[in-house]
């Protein structure tokens, strides 16, 4: 008896520790390593940075760390422009995702109940093919003699090939296409729970369907809108593959900058400081979200 209750309290103590353990091993430790590298100096060596960690000279190790790389980031406006451009592209993409995802999620929530689980499965289905392959497929669609041009000239809408590939538009198309499930699923989850009689009550009180949508449906779907937007915005800011494959050389994004510092210039410390910068940019919306959520729960226990 006693042993069992001991096991029970042990497992009760361990279960909440699981997420911390995971985050510790796969987030905190790598983060500390990256942070350390970002404070180091580049070196032509293996690994390509100094100083290396040694127990015998701890004081010397810490005194060799400095903020030079971050200063460099502020001096060259390339990083500032890349950051701004990333945030802009991610924000516009998130908006487009909302515009495309909301009607889809709304339609799914309104579908007959027996169809809904199938629809959810279909939304997730593209994940069965590798992300990279699906983005490559878009090159074939968007390139000047690609499927899109063929289709549009086939029905007589255009006479010249359209230039979409290697523009920002291609990046938007790629992000909207690739991230759509992350927008649709949280929206669907909140919309599905919504009580239809609330909309009827709004209509009954004289509100047109369009106004009822804005005064009832949208506010009640807000948790889903915020969750979906964050799930799309955050990875979109740091996106590398889509701008690299579809965006051409003109599209400036911080993720590409990080990649080129890391692999082309082999400047690991600078690349690490770009990574830290990216993290700082993304912490902000998460904090805002938590704040909004906490206030919402406060007023409505």
């Amino acid at each position: 008896m006693k042993e069992r209750s001991f096991m029970k309290s042990l497992s009760a103590g361990l279960v909440p520790a699981v997420p911390y353990l995971w985050l510790g091993v796969f987030f905190l430790v790598p983060f500390l390593i990256v942070l350390k590298i970002s404070l180091s100096d580049p070196a032509v060596a293996q690994p390509p940075y100094r100083p290396l960690f040694e127990w015998s000279d701890i004081m010397g190790f810490f005194s060799a760390l400095d903020f030079e790389n971050f200063e460099l980031l502020t001096q060259d406006d390339l990083y500032f422009r890349a950051t701004l451009s990333s945030v802009r592209i991610a924000a516009i993409s998130t908006l487009l995702l909302l515009l495309v995802g909301f009607p889809i999620a709304y339609g799914m929530a309104r579908a007959p109940e027996r169809h809904r689980s199938l629809l959810v499965a279909l939304v997730i289905l593209p994940f069965w093919t590798s992300f990279l392959i699906r983005i490559y497929a878009w090159i074939a669609i968007l390139k000047p003699e690609g499927l899109l041009t063929q289709a549009l000239s086939g029905i007589g809408l255009i006479s010249e090939p359209i230039e979409i590939l290697n523009t920002e538009w291609a990046v938007y198309i790629g992000i909207v296409y690739a991230y759509l499930p992350f927008m649709v699923l949280p929206l669907y989850a909140t919309l599905e729970k919504m009580d239809d009689t609330l909309l009827e009550a709004a209509l009954d009180l004289g509100s047109t369907p369009w106004r009822s949508f804005w005064t009832i449906t949208v506010p009640l779907a807000m948790p889903g809108i915020i969750a979906g937007s964050l799930l799309c915005f955050i990875p979109a800011v740091g996106e590398f593959v889509i701008p690299d494959l579809l965006g051409g050389s003109e599209t400036l994004m911080i993720g590409r900058q990080l990649w080129s510092e890391f692999f082309s210039n082999r400047d690991w410390p600078l690349a690490s400081s770009v990574a830290i910068l990216l993290l700082i940019i993304l912490v902000l919306p998460i904090v805002i979200y938590r704040d909004v959520e906490a206030r919402r729960l406060e007023t409505r226990p």
Partner: peptide
Amino acid sequence: VPPYRRPVNMMFQSYALFPH
């Protein structure tokens, strides 16, 4: 005539109060 143009109001069985 749609519900929002009728001079009629309804009190719902579930009350249907707007939670927000």
